[in-house]
């Protein structure tokens, strides 16, 4: 049973933890760090519920071995909001009614944040393609699209 020391930064805090080499990043976040906001919906990289930012880019943390995260910076859903304020994407998801059961929400929000980092004023097409790695079964996506447009407007100071 091989164990390695993993040094990485999660939500701005440095961590040094011993992890088994066959653990995934999702497992370490959830079971070692107690960051249960990262959900595991399929474990096969198909549903996107476990999406986190790794060095600023979205990845499905169920397909990343924890050891692959050595030296990386990870942002999970818990790390988006500041002490007194939600991230504009989070706020927009609430306001637009883009959340129902909420199980896809953490991953969806992370993808939306990454999308708006790349395209601050995205086209409908860019939104649709930018989120297609995150399955949602409740909403039919319409209110998620609205939320992304709302967040974009607010982040650009238009609303």
């Amino acid at each position: 049973m091989e164990v390695k020391e993993l040094n990485f930064v999660v939500n701005g805090k440095p961590y040094k933890v011993d992890v088994r080499t066959n653990w995934t990043l999702a497992q370490v976040l959830r079971e070692k760090l107690g960051l249960l906001g990262t959900k595991v919906g399929c474990g096969e990289g198909e549903c996107g519920a476990c999406t986190v930012l790794m060095n600023g880019e979205t990845v499905t943390s169920c397909l990343v071995l924890a050891v692959q995260a050595e030296g990386s910076e990870i942002t999970t859903i818990e790390g988006l909001a500041s002490a007194d304020k939600l991230h504009p994407v989070q706020q927009a998801f609430i306001d637009a009614g883009a959340i129902q059961c909420g199980y896809c929400t953490p991953g969806m929000v992370m993808s939306a944040v990454a999308l708006l980092n790349r395209y601050p004023d995205p086209t409908d097409e860019q939104i649709r393609y930018g989120l297609n790695g995150n399955l949602c079964r409740c909403t039919g996506y319409q209110k998620i699209f609205e939320a992304v447009r709302l967040a974009s407007k607010r982040m650009r100071g238009e609303a």
Binding site: S111, L115, G133
Partner: peptide, 9 residues
């Protein structure tokens, strides 16, 4: 290829 997340990995 796959999704954004897949292409980032």
């Amino acid at each position: 290829v796959g999704s954004v997340q897949v292409r980032n990995l």
